[in-house]
């Protein structure tokens, strides 16, 4: 039983590390600022989520698990807020998004 839990948590940790690195690669490869934010949100949600889930399996039913869950809830509430503030600030400062269909940013406000 404990072997199964170890295997599951190992898989979750590996998946978390994989998604964190994917987010880092995306942050370097993406062509403009707005597309980079999408890559960063992979790290923020999938990477963090899988890592915390893996650690929760290791900790079992203790206060440590509760704290890990709190960290997860915190990340899931704050990271979209920060991302949205960032996108909005960039848009009001006039950073033009690269668009596939060629038209510029729609009229402000």
């Amino acid at each position: 039983m404990s072997l199964a839990i170890d295997l599951a948590s190992w898989a979750l940790l590996v998946a978390g590390g994989f998604f964190c690195i994917v987010g880092g690669i995306g942050l370097i490869r993406m062509p403009d600022f707005y597309t980079r934010m999408h890559a960063a949100s992979v790290t923020d949600t999938l990477g963090a989520g899988f890592m915390l889930a893996g650690m929760m399996l290791q900790a079992g039913l203790t206060l440590v698990t509760v704290k890990l869950a709190l960290i997860g809830v915190l990340l899931f509430f704050t990271s979209p807020t920060a991302t949205h503030a960032l996108a909005r600030a960039a848009m009001t400062r006039g950073v033009q998004p690269l668009l596939a269909d060629g038209e510029g940013a729609p009229s402000k406000r």
Binding site: H38, S41, T45, L46, S79, P80, H84, A87, R88, M91
Partner: peptide, 14 residues
């Protein structure tokens, strides 16, 4: 708005 931003691939700008 938060759910849109939280799902990778979409970001709410305004």
């Amino acid at each position: 708005a938060n759910s849109i931003t939280l799902t990778p691939g979409t970001i709410s700008v305004e």
